[in-house]
Amino acid sequence: MKKYLATRFMHMLITIFLVITITFFMMYLLPGNPLGELVEKLPEDVQANYMAKHGLDKPVYTQYFIYLKKLVFHGDLGESFVNPGRSVVSILKAGVPVSSRIGFQGLIFGIPIGLLLGILAAYKRGKVMDYFTMFLSLLCVSIPSFVLATVLQYFFAVKMQLFPVTGWGSFIFTVLPSIAFGVRSIGVHARYMRTSWLDVMNQDYVLAAESIGFSRTQLTFKIILRNAMLPIVTIIVPELALIFTGTFVLETIFSIPGIGSYFISSVTGRDYPMIIGQTIFIAVMYIFAMFLVDLLYMAIDPRIRLTDSK
């Protein structure tokens, strides 16, 4: 088992390395002045100064190694081009808690509702309730988050004025974006849980347990629930990582200062260090989350744990 984990860990590191490298070179292969419009209007010698300051006068490969060195040994992702003086890391530090908040709140709202709906659908299989809940789940998954966001914004903020239209601050600012983010999770988890629950419910070991005297409540909570949650766990974890890509558009719509809106503005403003830095951050989060899923699955499903040690 340890060998497997070590291999996976190595894979993770290699992938991260590749991501950093590829992203870096992708940005530098783009046409146009790397410093963007900000600097184009400046006289040539000032430009040269700027370039030297950011190390842009050196060949690409050297820049790459310098970048790597700074990243690995100092945790330094460079400085923003568009907002000079602000390090990428500091911008990330400011934005991450904001995006995370929306994401977490959305998941805390969406996942339990989704799971419960899924279990309900499983028990009412084939009946109207089943079709209804599954249709609802499909709806949740099919309506794009930004569509939902704009609809929510229009009805609850603009028309009914129950919530602020845009901006960030106290809890009330987080409500609409969280809901817009979390609704999709309801659908995803309801569908998965229904399948998983039905699957476990009909297993022989549930019947066998019943035959030695388990009551229905005991069966539900001690056996079915635990076994049905297994596959669910493996989708919850990546969802945590995908918070960061999922909030991009929501942050634009609600004018929320998370890393998503920074990312978008850095994309449109060609702020390369920001783009690279954020990409690396998000990718690393995701890759790490996938690794975590493997670990988790090993911890909770004995079948996997043991077959690998042979």
């Binding site: 022989d204 070991y205 019947l207 066998a208 035959s211 005297g213 009551s215 499903d301 004995p302 079948r303």
Partner: peptide, 27 residues
């Protein structure tokens, strides 16, 4: 009723099944 049923299962009558692997909780 359910209570009596649960009491009598496993104590007075028990059952064993065909597929032992499927009848045991894998976790």
């Amino acid at each position: 009723n359910t209570k009596k049923l649960n009491e009598f299962r496993g104590t007075i009558v028990s059952m064993i099944f065909q597929d032992a692997l499927a009848s045991l909780n894998p976790t």
